[in-house]
Nucleic acid binder design. Sequence first.
DNA 1: ATGAAACATTAACCCAAGTTAACAGAAATG
DNA 2: CATTTCTGTTAACTTGGGTTAATGTTTCAT
Lengths: 178, 178
Amino acid sequence: MDLSEFFLSHGKPVLKNKNNYVFNQGEAEQHLYFVKSGLLKAFYVTEDGKESIKSFITHGDVIGSLSAALDKQNASFSLVCLTECELVSLPFDVLIAESRKDINLANTVINLLMQFAMKKERREYEFLCLSAEQRYLLLKQNSPHLLEQVKQHDLAKYLGVTAVGLSRIKKRVQAIKC
Amino acid sequence: MDLSEFFLSHGKPVLKNKNNYVFNQGEAEQHLYFVKSGLLKAFYVTEDGKESIKSFITHGDVIGSLSAALDKQNASFSLVCLTECELVSLPFDVLIAESRKDINLANTVINLLMQFAMKKERREYEFLCLSAEQRYLLLKQNSPHLLEQVKQHDLAKYLGVTAVGLSRIKKRVQAIKC
DNA sequence: ATGAAACATTAACCCAAGTTAACAGAAATG
DNA sequence: CATTTCTGTTAACTTGGGTTAATGTTTCAT
């Protein structure tokens, strides 16, 4: 069983407009969301009000707060739509319960989790080993479409610098090219 | 079935001395390792020779290169023993193959992967939202034992600063306390 | 169309951390 | 025991990026 099929058969469609929140940091939130179309951002807001973007989520992705779902804690981040979005929501428990009964589904979930873990590992690597400039160049190379869809302000918050910092990095990179 | 049981029944014991490598960055490496005792570090070396520590691994942990095992790529990091270590090695394929047959094992793997994903997510959060000083304080709070077992040089490489930088951070933190 | 809001760039100034190097204490090795 | 090696601290200097603020551009709403 393909995971998107499971979402479509067991989940509930959710339509959201641009700038609508799917859930808020601090809320109890035990759903997973499959993205049929649209673009979203998942972000943290720290105590002093600084926003940091965890990830951009797009067509075909699955997103949810693992820690909230698993340990019944509150969501550690917020999820908001950057464009109109077609989502499918599925209670986390339903997926876990079905996985206990259906071995094929369980292996599909294993696959999803491994892909997810690899993605997180890659991002850990980027923060640990690369400079902000290197992270920008890598993103530009791997996701050129994203650079066009996303405001520089948000791109900066994803890369771990300020908008001013990113502007300087772009200028520096330009200078080297010419 | 508990995962450590599966390792003990299907895996092969591996004994390593201090400073011995379990595997090297760049090698094909398709095993998972369960740590019965000892302390290890997993680290990247960048092109320009800089070492960055991905994680410390200790008693009860499971470690392996997901990307190497899953996509048959080479290990993206090295694994070395900081103390004598008792490990149990298990070919990644064996675990996957058994998970396809045994639904309980599959759900145990799901659990392991979710714990792993949450750990990586926490680390992502720390790099994205916290300063080096805040990361140091958090580590000190959550893993005080580690601060004693691990050389400051390695601690620094884990926190994403230089040894000199960490020394300054410690001094600054001390100053605030008094 | 026009004013307001949002977005991007640039400059000035500051600070945390990198780099290099000197130094001192601890630990391993002959 | 002596001495080399490892480990941690400190100082001097440099640099990348944060902060604030001014200026221009684009986008949006009325």
